[in-house]
Nucleic acid binder design. Sequence first.
DNA 1: CTGAAAGCGCTTACAG
DNA 2: CTGAAAGCGCTTACAG
Lengths: 337, 337
Amino acid sequence: MTQPSVKRPTIREVAALAGVSRGTVSRVLNGGRWVSEEAESAVRDAITSTGYKPNPHARSLATNKSNSVAFLLTEPTDTLFDDPVFSVLVRGAAQALARRGQSLVVLVAGTAAEQARAADYITSGHVDGVLLAYSSHSGSQLVTELVGAGVPIVAFGPPVGASRSLGSVASDDFNGARRMVEHLRDRGRSRIAFISGPDNTPGGVGRLAGYQAVLGDEFDANLVDRGDWSPRSGAAAMQRLLGRTPDLDAVFAANDQMAAGALSVLTAAGYRVPTDVAVAGFDDTNIASTSSPGLTTMRQPFDQICAEGVRLLLDLVAGGVPATITLPAELVVRQST
Amino acid sequence: MTQPSVKRPTIREVAALAGVSRGTVSRVLNGGRWVSEEAESAVRDAITSTGYKPNPHARSLATNKSNSVAFLLTEPTDTLFDDPVFSVLVRGAAQALARRGQSLVVLVAGTAAEQARAADYITSGHVDGVLLAYSSHSGSQLVTELVGAGVPIVAFGPPVGASRSLGSVASDDFNGARRMVEHLRDRGRSRIAFISGPDNTPGGVGRLAGYQAVLGDEFDANLVDRGDWSPRSGAAAMQRLLGRTPDLDAVFAANDQMAAGALSVLTAAGYRVPTDVAVAGFDDTNIASTSSPGLTTMRQPFDQICAEGVRLLLDLVAGGVPATITLPAELVVRQST
DNA sequence: CTGAAAGCGCTTACAG
DNA sequence: CTGAAAGCGCTTACAG
């Protein structure tokens, strides 16, 4: 037996109570321009006394704006979603949007079926734009489709591929990686290995390039291996590196998770960290402060990244042009180096 | 210069092309009952040839259903959101909802202002119901308000407080904790410490009770300390425990994060894990498999939890009554015990 | 099984 | 500054 709940008040009730037309109420609701002071205050009083709240669907229907955006995840497995970066981005984006009266819909689209559904959902008008989380090739077809449909999109991470039509926000991977390698050198390390992310991945490219840039002539391909961002892959890469270059005295992984994986392999193999081998990561997610020893890492300014990403996207929705924003990463030194 | 994009086809175009009324198209769209085969196929053809997609806002306005639910986070800080459990729940809930044609809106409401905004958002009709993530006292006022407004709610975690009006889904904390303590005893441990979550917290209560139940007469209050779920708090609790009961030979934390914090303190203090002290957690989040040594833990069946939570909530939205579901947790043994 | 019509609750030119 | 009215794109009794 549901409550015979009284019907919610509509703009009609408010108008009647305030003694004005519905149009006037609407104008008050939408900024209050072209409304006399008396009318405005009468309307505001009527709103509070009736407890009126605008029906968002009616509004969206009339304006053809949903006032919400999608957070689109196109990675296939749990591997990447488990990445703490995602929860930080989701939270940050939701908060930044809320401040502007917009909301965030989470779309998980790893499988082909999910991607088809996501494309449908997005192009149906449920959302005004899309925040793209670390999308690599796995989502490229979907992204291409969305771009073709004219959907405003901003990617977290450096632009890849169709960058002309996408906005993007990222931390400065190149200089961040350089900074970390310099830090390791300052600590007296000379055989610095690098565990990169997957090829062609946002983030993967720039960090490797930064590493190479500092090493210059000393660059040794044997000191470089690759993971897929997961801790497990970092551990495997570390194993291979130890086999190939047992004289390494530092390892810098392109994210914290792989660094943590590398750390556990080193520990298990009897190396002391940082005495024998220094370990460094990238991101400064909670895994960095949690592992023992604590992980030295480059902190991505996630709050800023989210705020700028949201701003960029809403600009695009309002008819602006795509921009690319790069923000500096900051060195955070802990016990591992 | 925006594309002078052709207007999207509406139900009107589809009806015209199919040679039927808009009502008939609508019936096809909504299940196809009371529609002749010829009419149905004509409509379907018209839909594909026009590329028609229903406008969700028009539909919501007419049906008074939003077809989306909120994922509400009422914890104040980053501490808890950093908890990997959240990203798992968000992802799982979003996927379970997508399968049913519904979507998930993320609402972060830690501050009072955010909670007021969230209440407004929810009661405005943006969503049909709420998935409540691990809400303790911090969100109780908001929850009370929502319950009062008749909003369907399902909580992740065992019911606390106003359980009569909320549905809930949780893993079996009590028996899960019992199982873990028994495992530690099987491993020959006799001085088993426990790090609990905050008082009155869903999850915190049952796990502590399970621990106590196994120990019975041997229960020693000195072996129990408390954290706030964060790694840092687990480390602090471990420190206190070591000071108070240096003879402990195992520590069981109520979640993986606190276990990881405890682990790092033990390691730093020169204890060998598990030789000197065994360490166990709860949840089986990625932190458990990442730490070294790997953490023995109780795995929560998150996929099931999400699926059941969504089912329950949609039932409630459809007029059902609140139910409480408890799912078994599973022991996962790694190197730390 | 099907169509005509009312209704969902807003917004927005258009006159004044 | 304000009201009357059309329009946004669906759904759903109601007749037939």
